[in-house]
């Protein structure tokens, strides 16, 4: 298909929509978001020790005030944590046909293309396009550098850089949370419990740091509105897909 034909065809289809998310995966996204925020707020409220508390004692006081004491706060944190885990377990097992391709997509990285995308997209979003030319002028093609933002698949590598730590971090958070919950039910040795507390805290902190970028990209960043809307409707306009996820767009168009 020649370029001209393709452009005409694209124009005609510009406002047509492409299926991007199933209803179930949209539900899982918002269920995860709700659980995450609730568990984050209550989890920070469980830290009383001033040396360890990252936000401040006022947060601990407020959370314990809302839930009627530290013991109740711990209980709801554990209940929601278990609910979050069980719903995801059921989802992953029952919908393996949806989850496995998702994981495959998320964990597939094309180093050459994706490193260039990360560098250039990062520069473009903070310093602007002009900075890309400047960098190109300095590097003069060394390290295989080009002032381009390479095409991306269903997810761009920026999204993958958040998705991978979120998934692996989620597993770590669930495992360490389970160890802590099991501590006063069945565990004899306390060393794993003590390590679990620290690892739980660190992992949540790192994933939360990534969440800041995720929320900015989804709700504020220029040109990303269709992606945000798709988290409710499940659909994105074809022109958006072509612009932001060209490799995926091509795959769908070629009927693969």
């Amino acid at each position: 298909m020649s370029d001209e034909q393709s452009i005409q065809k694209d124009d005609a289809e510009e406002k047509e929509q492409m299926e991007r998310h199933t209803k179930l995966s949209i539900f899982m996204h918002w269920f995860n978001a709700a659980c995450w925020l609730f568990l984050l707020a209550t989890g920070i409220g469980l830290i009383r020790n001033a040396d360890l508390q990252p936000v401040g004692g006022w947060w601990t006081d407020m959370m314990r005030g809302i839930f009627g004491g530290g013991a109740n706060l711990l209980l709801v944190h554990e209940i929601v944590g278990i609910l979050w885990t069980l719903v995801f377990l059921v989802y992953v097992i029952a919908k393996a046909k949806e989850v496995v391709p998702f994981l495959k997509e998320v964990f597939t990285i094309d180093p050459k293309r994706d490193v260039l995308w990360l560098v250039n997209k990062g520069i473009q979003m903070t310093l602007g396009y002009k900075a890309l030319y400047k960098l190109d002028g300095i590097l003069k093609g060394r390290f295989g550098y080009k002032p381009v933002i390479p095409d991306q698949g269903f997810y761009n590598v920026g999204q993958k850089m958040f998705a991978i730590p979120s998934i692996l971090g989620g597993v770590v958070i669930v495992v360490t949370g389970a160890i802590m919950t099991a501590s006063n039910v069945m565990l004899e040795n306390t060393a794993p419990v003590q390590w679990a507390i620290l690892i739980h805290f660190l992992t949540v902190g790192f994933v939360f740091a990534g969440l800041l970028i995720h929320v900015y990209m989804a709700s504020i960043a220029a040109g990303e509105r269709p992606a945000f809307i798709s988290m409710f409707t499940g659909k994105v306009p074809q022109d958006y897909a072509m612009h932001h996820h060209k490799l995926w767009y091509d795959e769908v168009r070629e009927g693969r």
Binding site: R113, Q124, Y129, D151, I220, A222
Partner: peptide, 26 residues
């Protein structure tokens, strides 16, 4: 990113896609 988005006029020179070499000069 927010500062750049709000205060810097940075029009996109071309669009980013080109399927032949995985990228296109902007």
């Amino acid at each position: 990113m927010l500062g750049k988005q709000l205060f810097v006029n940075d029009p996109e020179p071309g669009h980013e896609s080109d399927s032949t070499d995985g990228g296109k000069p902007v």
